[in-house]
Design a protein around this nucleic acid. Sequence first.
RNA 1: GGGCGAUUAGCUCAGUGGGAGAGCGCUUCCUUCACACGGAAGAGGCCGCUGGUUCAAUCCCAGCAUCGCCUACCA
Length: 813
Amino acid sequence: MSQAPTDHAGIATQNVVEKALQSQGEDRHKLGREKFIERVWEWKKLYGGTIINQLKCMGASCDWSRERFTLDEGLSRAVKEVFVRLYEEGLIYRGDYIINWCPRCHTALSDLEVEHEDVKGKLWYIKYKFTHKAGYVTVATTRPETYLGDTAVAVNPNDERYKDIIGKTVKLPVLNREIPVIADEFVDSSFGTGAVKVTPAHDPNDFEIAKRHNLPFIKIMTGDGKMTEEAGPYRGQDRFVCRKNVLNDLEDLGHLVKITDHDLAIGHCYRCKTIVEPYLSKQWFVKIKSLADEAIKSVKDGRVKIVPSGWENSYFDWMENIKDWCISRQIWWGHRIPVWYCKSCEEIIVSRETPTACKCGSDNLRQDEDVLDTWFSSALWPFSTLGWPDDTEELKTFYPTSVLITGFDILFFWVARMIMMGLKFMGKQPFEHVYIHALIRDAEGQKMSKSKGNVVDPLKMTEAYGTDAVRFTLAAYAAQGRDIKFDEKKVEGYKHFLNKIWNVARFISMNIQEGEKIVPVRELLSDGSPFTFSLADRWILSRVSSVCSEVNQSLDEYRFNDSANILYQFIWHELCDWYVEMIKPELYGDNAESKSAAISTLMHVYETALSLLHPFMPFITEEIWQQLPAGKEVNSLCIRKYPVADEGIKDREAEDKMTVIMDAVNGIRSIRGELNISPSLELKALIKADVSSGDILNANLTYVVKLAGAGEIQIGKEIKSPKNAAVAIKPSMEIYVPLKGLIDFDSEISRLNKEFAKTQKELMFIKKKLANEDFRMKAPKAVVEENQLKCNEYQSKLQGIQDNIDKFKEWGK
RNA sequence: GGGCGAUUAGCUCAGUGGGAGAGCGCUUCCUUCACACGGAAGAGGCCGCUGGUUCAAUCCCAGCAUCGCCUACCA
């Protein structure tokens, strides 16, 4: 069972709908909460199916009847249950903290939802005058406007420069507020002036310092990013306008000492890119430490395996330094926090059901306005979708699930939180494997983004090239731990592969009668009459068996690019280029027995290949399967058992013999190709081969004749090179092709010289190795032997080349 | 600041402690009855640089360079 997740994407969705409202001259506050939510649901009905549709078009075979949405009834129930249980355990709390605030979205963001961008900024040095004496202390800041909210200046207690001013006070320019100089270990004496302004309500570090020293918290900014009453003359100004004005005024008053360049990373809202503000507000948090500890353990001890494992380090790093999770969002689209406040007695009621009255008897209750972070509900996905908190059959059957497939960019957002929640509420990990797939970038390697306009629409791709080609391309490039540069040219290339596959089907339907009885290969084998199989049959059967094991293994290891490439190479180059060509004489001939063996073999191999390919290209393989003239044991490929290797069909001898045939064919082809001899011209070939190779060639001569286009072939141990013959030298044979016209001795000699040089280089390399005493002593015996064999082989090949060069030189005189 | 990854043929990328691979592109030949979205034959690479470990390094280790990504409260 495979489930495709869809969440309600709280902030993003609310933004989109709000923008739509804006263009109609409305806004959510005028509309009111209920009406607004209705609008979002309408929007969701229109567009919510987009991703699911894309998945369907891409041929994802999920159980669509089990489609779920994080705001569904059942899932919402799970959310409330989890919130209440965590609250009762003290793992959820509410408090005033500095959080990341998006002034445009009007909501808190978790740390993860802030994107940092390096910018070249400035460091402004501002002087605060002492109250007890003349002079001043200078502080450095990147955000000068925040000085309006300063409630102290901090220095390091060990900083000799400032020892005597600790406990004294300074006066803020313009506002004339008097603030103390305090000592705190946090301050780094070596940075800036070693004195830091403390703005408790607008900086997380300052917030911590302020708590340690009981400093007041002054909010100088509203949720809109505008200055408050506390900002005195700057009240009402936008934060960036205020900065300019503050700097101008400080300069005018002589408080601006200097300005230096300073690189810093500025946080932006991940949904709308607005610069976020550290903002003091009351939020709900999850106390995360104990949950994280268990989640770390589950990966360390292998209950959860992340593939590729390199991501485990990132996971640990983040989990080990995790901070409490801010889960409240000041938006309307999402799960409303199940907390009510009694207006009469201040009681806080946390409840699964909507309460009607407080303990105190009052029914004057108000529900918390905020909703939960979308990821809070997504984190429950593996069990909430299976019916939790009820103890359902689905949970018993499917939990823990086997694999989660996702992108690295939500490893922390989602994966880590699912692991934490799964362990906490189910007592078991939510999945055994996490496969982190590649991220798809554009052809230049840029991350896709709507603002860059380089987003590839999968539906457009499937329209242009077909779903199967797109899927196969992605699989073929999905090497672990690397992103995919998506280039349409690649898809174009794999479309040709589909064409190839289709043409094999055509070939089959042209040569196999509708309803022709196909004898299963294994029956023919077990019949005790293996000789009805040709060498080609035995070879391809052996090969397809190996391919089965290789594909299965690479799939098990999530090495999809290997699976795809193995299939590509096998189908195109072995099945099409060699096997199909080799059996044509049988198919066109009238030997019923061998023809029947060839047909059975062809069907077996092709069906197996289709089956192996089916997960990569479901549509074309199924279509072809439906049209196959005969042999199908099930009526749909998608329910056919995935092929596994039949070890009994592996045939080492056949593969070795094929190597000899291929050597002969390739040798003759090389001569033809390099001398530009027309394929229509039949060649005569003489092959000097040892007895065993000669026997193999003699027994399978038709292959060489057919594939090399040779009319007459002589084979023998004692064959001598005739005059005016081109030559090809292979490990087990020398091939001569006599040519009617005079051949160009010089070009033959240079061709052979080139090969001589290449072979000699390799031979020298190996000889040097073998001459090394250490190598012979310390290298594994098999390696030494292998090198010795190779040495002999190269030596005889080199001799053969030399002999032929000599002959050409002789003839050329 | 910390961490991770990349660097291999013109391009895009696999790969391995013992003979450098694929696809596309390129060159030459071929419209032979599955396929010109094809077939056959070729050319093309100090496997980023410098050291170290090893009998042996493109691969392991260290450093460097360039590029990319993630992460971070030095004001």
